[in-house]
Amino acid sequence: REAGDMTHLFSIIVLLLKINATKSCSGVSLKTQELYLLVFVTRYLDLFQSYISLYNSCMKFIFIVSSGCIIGYMRKHKVVSQTYDAEQDTFRVAFLVWPSFLLAAVINQKLSVMEILWTFSIYLESVAILPQLVLLQRTKNVDNLTSNYVFLLGSYRGLYLLNWIYRCLTEEGYRQWIVWISGLLQTAIYCDFFYYYLKSWRKNERLSLPS
């Protein structure tokens, strides 16, 4: 789990570094970033309500602030915002948000606002990368930092799968089907990307996804 959290954190650092160092966000999907902000805000509503550990609270805080920061760069920064590929980043996010919300309203563990929003965030996270993957496919010569960002982000949920298997074997009564199935879907969505990423990495070439 620690490795999963760290790859998640690194993915965000890599993206912020890319944007800040190159003053460019080309190849980065604003739609995916906005979906992630929605995911973090709806999942971490309990930030001030239930306390698990300092580590958890800090990470939640970092995830919310950093995705807000990335969105701010892409929308407001006078240089960076010019480099955003708005014409290419056209995924219809309503097709991800509404089904996730309806599914969360139907399939959840407890019928309460907090629980439904939490479940919604789990469902939405599993598909939030899709606009980014579509944008990557449309971009010829994806830059290394962007492809590393997507690779790290995909590794995060993959490593969580291992964490879940371990916890399931060692902790009695540890079951969370909604999270597991969503996490499995989330990781599966990256399979195609992983294949081409590792192929280009082995050949020492820039990544370009077949359209």
């Binding site: 789990r1 959290d5 998640h8 309990d46 239930s50 698990i52 550990s53 958890n56 990470m59 939640k60 995830f63 939490w118 969580y160 964490n163 902790e171 009564g173 540890y174 079951r175 969370q176 999270v179």
Partner: peptide
């Protein structure tokens, strides 16, 4: 509340 019922993951 049992440990596993707490949402202790991120």
């Amino acid at each position: 509340l049992k440990r596993h019922q707490v949402k202790d993951e991120l």
